[in-house]
């Protein structure tokens, strides 16, 4: 009798990590998209900026976001480890190969698609995450009339802003007014997408994401061994239409809309 090899040392165990981290990242996409849809609102960023503040300051969400960064790193690192092993499994390649006869292009090039997404992510984080966390975005002040729900906004200079602040005052007519001083990520998004190059990068990256997920989502469940006759149709639908088409298109629509309309 002997012990079998530990789970994570096996090819299957490593794919398990890819699968679970992949599914978690898919879930994140849903949440991220729902939040970002607020960028379509023509409210000078009131909804989006207060949401952004909440997402970056609410402790449970901060914990989940650390988990998210770790997940992403794991997904990328394991992809590298697995790819290296896979390459070693065929040291001499074929002179002729006709992969298209037996498999889909995207399923064979998940690494290439993933790399495009990684390059995009670095730019994306630098443009928004980094700037937001390092006070490099504009500032704004909202006055919301709590009786009429009317919101007015005005830009703040950096001297007028110290940190995110909510105060209340009473208007001359006696209405309660909520005053919010905030970083203006919404404005930053608009600035960033004045650049057609950046808009193009986002569109290309979302196309890569689409092809990555059309294969990846279904593949994750196959790897888990979850292949139930009753749910297979649902997983295929989610993988192709929801994660492969709707979500990438919705994300890509944000820079395109801002570039064309604002």
């Amino acid at each position: 009798m002997s012990k079998s090899k530990p789970l994570l040392s096996s090819t299957l165990g490593k794919k398990l990590i890819m699968s679970l981290t992949g599914i978690f990242l898919c879930l994140f996409l849903v949440v991220h998209l729902i939040g970002n849809l607020q960028l379509f609102k023509d409210d000078a960023g009131y909804a989006f900026n207060t949401y952004a503040h909440f997402m970056t300051n609410f402790t449970p969400i901060k914990i989940v976001s650390i988990l998210l960064y770790l997940t992403f790193v794991l997904h990328a690192v394991y992809a590298l480890v697995i790819t290296r092993k896979n390459k070693a499994a065929r040291p001499i390649g074929y002179n002729q190969s006709s992969g298209n006869a037996n498999s889909k292009w995207n399923s064979r090039n998940m690494g290439v698609l993933g790399t495009i997404i990684l390059i995009f992510l670095v730019t994306h984080m630098q443009n928004f995450w980094w700037k937001y966390h390092n006070d490099q975005v504009p500032y704004v002040q909202y006055e919301k009339n709590l009786d009429t729900q009317e919101v007015t906004s005005q830009a703040l200079s950096s001297d007028e802003f110290t940190n995110y602040l909510v105060t209340y005052k009473t208007a001359e007519n006696g209405d309660a007014i909520e005053v919010i001083k905030s970083q203006d990520l919404y404005q930053q998004v608009e600035y960033a997408f004045e650049n057609i190059g950046l808009v193009l990068l986002y569109v290309i990256a979302m196309a890569a994401l689409s092809f990555h997920l059309i294969h990846g989502f279904q593949s994750a469940f196959q790897t888990l061994g979850f292949k139930h006759r009753r749910y297979i149709g649902t997983i295929r639908f989610l993988g192709i239409w929801v994660f492969g088409v709707i979500i990438p298109i919705a994300f890509a629509a944000i820079p395109v809309y801002i570039y064309l309309v604002r």
Binding site: S4, S9, S10, T11, L12, K15, Q218
Partner: peptide
């Protein structure tokens, strides 16, 4: 399942990416 997967790995085969090429061929 464990013994055969262990041996498969020991032989130096790659891991499954679910491309479906095997099924097709």
């Amino acid at each position: 399942a464990q013994a055969m997967v262990d041996q498969m790995d020991a032989e130096g085969f790659g891991s499954c990416t679910n491309t479906g090429a095997c099924e097709a061929e």
